[in-house]
Design a binder for these strands. Sequence first.
DNA 1: ACTGTCTTTCAAAGCGCTTTGGGTTGCCAG
DNA 2: CTGGCAACCCAAAGCGCTTTGAAAGACAGT
Lengths: 341, 341
Amino acid sequence: MNLKELAAALNLSQTTVSRALNGYPEVREETRARVLAAAKAAHYAPNSRARRLATGRAMTIGHVIPLTGRAEMVNPIFADFLIGAGEVYAREGYDLLLSMVTDGDTDKAFRQLAANGSVDGIMVQAPQEDDPRIALLKELDLPFLVHGRTGDALGYNWLDIANIRAFRRATDFLLDLGHTRIALVNGQARFDFSQRRERGFREALAARGVSPLPHLMANDAMTESFGYLSAAAMLDGPEPPTAFLASSVIIAIGIRRAAADRGLRLGRDLSVICHDDELSYLNNDVGGPAFTATRSSIRAAGRRCAEMLIDLIRDPDQPPKQELWDVDLTVGQSTGPCPTP
Amino acid sequence: MNLKELAAALNLSQTTVSRALNGYPEVREETRARVLAAAKAAHYAPNSRARRLATGRAMTIGHVIPLTGRAEMVNPIFADFLIGAGEVYAREGYDLLLSMVTDGDTDKAFRQLAANGSVDGIMVQAPQEDDPRIALLKELDLPFLVHGRTGDALGYNWLDIANIRAFRRATDFLLDLGHTRIALVNGQARFDFSQRRERGFREALAARGVSPLPHLMANDAMTESFGYLSAAAMLDGPEPPTAFLASSVIIAIGIRRAAADRGLRLGRDLSVICHDDELSYLNNDVGGPAFTATRSSIRAAGRRCAEMLIDLIRDPDQPPKQELWDVDLTVGQSTGPCPTP
DNA sequence: ACTGTCTTTCAAAGCGCTTTGGGTTGCCAG
DNA sequence: CTGGCAACCCAAAGCGCTTTGAAAGACAGT
């Protein structure tokens, strides 16, 4: 059943039927009711391909996931973000086009999406230092929103959490407990958020005159095994840390495993603070929060980012909008005073 | 730049240019080369909306994620599956349309997708007992592939792992170590895979004349906290288990936390086997496999499912194909002989 | 009765591609 | 020289919708 047939069945023109269905005012209410009833009865749904061609809008938003050879570290985080964004898209009638590309091909993918008009806007996640994607998207003149930010962070739309402040606060918390040998197990160094977190960490240490220990700082994809391996190495090495700061719950879980292997009890023998994205399947709150953590729901971020992007698509000529979310520190069972040796 | 302009610039008809670009034989090679060069120079990319309308194909595959009120348990697993499938789609020129729907609206979403022709096929994940989606998709006459299976499992296309066999094997392994009070911490009971896993568990016990203990069996969304809470309750209750069988690494991590809280060492005081989907960020292999596990890469499954579905879309009239993957049992550090009290 | 203004409806022109159903050439066999 | 056959190329007809520009009808004001 297509529009033509429906119109014929109703003895109306396609125009009128189309307008009736799309809520235009120049149709008599009686006619509209008749059309809507017939459409419903016939299970009519406008062909989205035709509609997209006619309107010139794709009603689709693109998420491009770069598959870096080894890690796909965004993985656990991108999934929750995606779900948050997807909720909003569904509500607003947008489709979500998910595009997996091998790392070097991101440019090509963006150009392609822009040229063939299959999306109205693009969501960018986890920007790196001077991320080339941002310049490219500006050039392509495609609405986009960045989750995170980079560089001077002006001239484009983004939403980010206050990473520096969060990690400064977390570090302060550990320093207040008497820890000085604090390890930072961070994400890959190229990511902007990793750099900001490290900066917050360093600032807090510097403010107390504590110097960071290079052998207690590690950067890599935020996996459980990375947490495990780096914690194991640090704990078994010289000058072992008394506390860890981890960029993700997943890393913290690895650290916990390394601690357990060595018979160390979190909160007593060893302290751990992590950043908690509030992943739905790694709830940190059961039985009191397991980890002391800076927390910010990545899913809520996805929702908000989607809203901002849609807003931008609907009205592309507004000045760039930015949103910076502050982050709570929740005290859990994984931290305690520095053990006196 | 559109086809018309490109054709005009080349002094050729749209037809010829289109054929040249799409590799049809009735164009002279010299002409084709000329067209391709011009297209490249002009950064021409056919408008996908127009192309879709003209061909009647959406070149898009739909993944519909039901958002059940609380859990979204598929979360960590669906992400890796998605990445696997997405790799294949990208390679084959298909787009991936991700649709989030609130749980009761799955039907509506499928009908919509079918009626408005925005996808050529649908991927179905985690089927439940007598999943209504399967009947619906058959009725809608839309190619679909199920990851998992349900009911008699005939008459449609699916790929599944041998859940019964895997859990029988895992249970046997624990029985061989002398365990008899074995707990099963399983996924939600409505999922077919949960039922099969429980069946494998029961079969193995029955074969040795051991009867399953109802208080040592739990079903829920496969989160870390579920693992933690059920393990905590079981370990603190009467007749505590000496071994756990967990349906996911995430659950097992929760169990490990409960064990650590109680000063129990995995592999010595308590044994844990889990099913490992080989999630990229929860690698179980670092420093020797942490958990003894039945393993099967969910990402590889995603890849294969995508291949099968595309095959089906290209040739919809072939008889239903099924694929059943066997599952390895990898021995890790989390299991050991039953401690003699 | 005539003009002007609204309201309601319609025919037809796109949107940018693919594909059908011919045309032209050029060449070779008869 | 003719007919037949490839090899190339083209004009035009869709695909199913939205939207423009106009017509038709109703009604009020003059």
